[in-house]
Design a protein around this nucleic acid. Sequence first.
DNA 1: GCATGCGATTTCGTATACGACCTTTGAGGA
DNA 2: TCCTCAAAGGTCGTATACGAAATCGCATGC
Lengths: 234, 234
Amino acid sequence: MSSASAASAGGTDVSKSRRAYDWIRDRITTGAFTPGYRLVLSSLAADLAMSVVPVREAIRELTAEGLVTFERHVGARVAMVDDSSYRHAMQVISVVESAATALSAAHLTPADVARARDLNEVMRSGLAHLDSRLFSGLNQEFHHTLYAKCPNPRLLEVVEAEWARLGHFRDSIFSFVPERAPASVCEHDTLIDLIEQGAPPEEIEQAVRSHRHGSLEAFLTNRHPEAVPATEGA
Amino acid sequence: MSSASAASAGGTDVSKSRRAYDWIRDRITTGAFTPGYRLVLSSLAADLAMSVVPVREAIRELTAEGLVTFERHVGARVAMVDDSSYRHAMQVISVVESAATALSAAHLTPADVARARDLNEVMRSGLAHLDSRLFSGLNQEFHHTLYAKCPNPRLLEVVEAEWARLGHFRDSIFSFVPERAPASVCEHDTLIDLIEQGAPPEEIEQAVRSHRHGSLEAFLTNRHPEAVPATEGA
DNA sequence: GCATGCGATTTCGTATACGACCTTTGAGGA
DNA sequence: TCCTCAAAGGTCGTATACGAAATCGCATGC
């Protein structure tokens, strides 16, 4: 019937369970549903104007992705992110995003690199007066630009999925440790230089890893000023 | 029945959706449900003696994990694994399993290392007359032994999840390219030596990557004898 | 005052029912 | 013979309903 996508039209363009999934997921990633928030099926169903069945299925999917936790006969809630799981997730991200970036480097166009440089310049110029949330957004976009051309789509999925698991905590580094920002911008420069020079993949991979490692270290040191845990390995 | 966990007892120890999930997943990983097999909700429900609702939820979870594909108003089927996705998955495994093994190395007990050596010796002695499926099982167990002590539980999950995605294809390398087996056993020795000597994590990581890379290369060369695609990057 | 046990309430777990959509198949016409 | 179209069958999608488990609150006894 009529026009292009019919997405906004009254029709059933997507399933209700899909709509529920997108809706809940969005709320989690934007922080409207904070970690620990109870996801009551009947309430969600009422808000979404549908029965509980599609909502249950959406919750199931989100559970499988690790965004929500579930307890039989008790209910679902947005997954908690404690220091430990945050650190573990960041370590995984460090591993997979580095690999993705290394694989992506050879496929980046000059335009991609220019875009990354621009983003980093915006960050640099906004170092003093930029909101930490905005800064984190730019940071995400910067890194995304660099790994987006990775020819392995599955690896990209793993990277994105891992970021999603952190919910709105994905941009909490610079909220907690703004002092880390200048060093971060600087390391970005180095990274772009490496890519532009056509450095070997291993070197690029190592650079991204060190970068992420530095951020994580700064975060942990900030949270636990006394016990610096030496973060084994890479 | 009787005894310990009451799991098999008549009671509702676990939810039906969980039972459905485990049942279907098991069929997929053991190869009873081969890639492409149609998963009809009503049939599965009948086989499991339950209604379709729990089955649907199980399917949803498996879809989120990438073990099955789903098409609206058409149905679910066991995910296909073509050469491309196989290669992508193996590359991801190469990345995450290497990291896990490197992190695990420092935590391995002498008993762990001894067990790995034993497993490799069984493989070596059975090189000629061992069934390829058995050999692959030993191979899996060998690698699992080495990365199991990784202190990052999330990283372990990612590794296992990625293996699961390959379904029963996880042990197809040696079915297609038995010639790869001797080199594999040899590289295992090198790897154990590195670990025993307390080599730096980077070196261990690199060793596992090369090992997996070699296997993948052998597989691809076997499938496409002419066009050797140079497998970019690592 | 505090611990304990019982009932009410909340919320989940599953079954059943019916409507919607895709696929297939067979008849009719070019 | 091949294409078109319509009807039938097969599956999924979602709503509703009821039973089961856990939690909370209150009354009771120590």
